[in-house]
């Protein structure tokens, strides 16, 4: 989960362009993390040392690990350890950005270390997805200021897990906005009643809506039609249902869901305590609306 917020960090710090990030996210599945990025992440080599090893590799026909050992930057045991370790998605993202020339190894090193320091994260946090830390990162990122802010954080925390589970992990949360009006394009909306009474919605332009719906349906959809609406709506309903189960289990509070509605090209005004929560996928931006 931290990988998704790391992507946002790179965007906010203007270290990468949205298009570069989208392309890197698209390439995650075919990206292999190279030794240089692994070594930087583990703190075994600096970016400058990695550059020296790469330069040396241009001259001699040896594997990069061997060169790093020959140059005294790493031990053989460290090289073996890096090759046998599972790398987190954040490193895949870093590698994909470096591969595309969006960042240098040095820029990636600086950004990753700064991000880890700002959020008190270790490398294992990226891999293990510590729930308490994810909760803190989400809370800090969104800074909801309403009466139900804790439940809003719970909602988003579960939403991201469900997106990773049912849609994919190749998304970046974009900055959240408190809004008083919103113009829906293609949206599925569901009201939640009870102690945490709110309206939830998923909205996107045609192409992103179809792509999102296709992923959830597990089949290629090609139009904004009843099946696309059913798929987007079913994702929202499933997520809201699982949220209601969690709230019920954790606090005994019962939430009641209303059937979803579809709305298109409609502007709603006079919204209160309502947040626009956009997520950038390689296929476009999908916006979640959550508010009272």
């Amino acid at each position: 989960m931290f990988t998704q917020f790391f992507g946002n960090y790179l965007l906010n710090k203007r270290l990468v362009e949205p298009q570069q990030l989208a392309e890197a996210l698209s390439a995650l599945k075919t990206t292999r993390v190279k030794l240089g990025v692994l070594a930087i992440n583990a703190g075994y080599m600096t970016a400058a040392q990695v550059e020296k090893v790469h330069a040396e590799q241009q001259r001699i026909d040896k594997r990069i690990g061997e060169i790093a050992v020959d140059m005294g930057f790493m031990t053989l045991a460290q090289v073996d350890e890096l090759f046998s370790s599972q790398s987190g998605t954040h490193l895949l993202l870093g590698q994909a950005l470096v591969d595309r020339g969006a960042m240098t190894n040095a820029e990636f090193e600086t950004a990753l270390n700064a991000y880890k320091a700002e959020n008190s994260l270790t490398d294992s946090d990226f891999k293990e997805n510590d729930n308490a830390k994810i909760h803190t990162v989400i809370k800090e990122f969104y800074r909801f200021d309403g009466a139900s802010d804790e439940l809003m954080v719970e909602y988003i925390d579960l939403l991201f897990k469900n997106i990773v589970r049912f849609i994919g992990d190749d998304f970046t949360p974009l900055n959240c906005e408190k809004i008083t009006s919103y113009e829906y394009t293609n949206a599925s909306i569901q009201k939640i009643n009870g102690q945490f009474s709110c309206t939830s919605a998923i909205d996107a332009e045609d192409a992103a809506y179809i792509a999102f719906a296709s992923r959830y349906a597990g089949e290629e959809l090609d139009a904004v039609d009843e099946m696309a609406d059913a798929s987007a709506g079913e994702f929202l309903n499933l997520h809201n249902g699982l949220f209601a189960v969690n709230v019920s289990n954790d606090s005994g509070v019962e939430l009641v869901l209303e059937p979803q509605n579809v709305i298109r090209n409609e502007k709603q005004t006079g919204l209160t305590d309502t947040y626009k929560i956009p997520l950038a996928f390689p296929f476009g931006t999908v916006t979640f609306i959550l508010g009272s």
Binding site: N240, G241, A244, V245, E254, L257
Partner: peptide
């Protein structure tokens, strides 16, 4: 068959 499998 529901997404809202609460005890209630």
């Amino acid at each position: 068959a529901s997404s809202v499998g609460t005890q209630a």
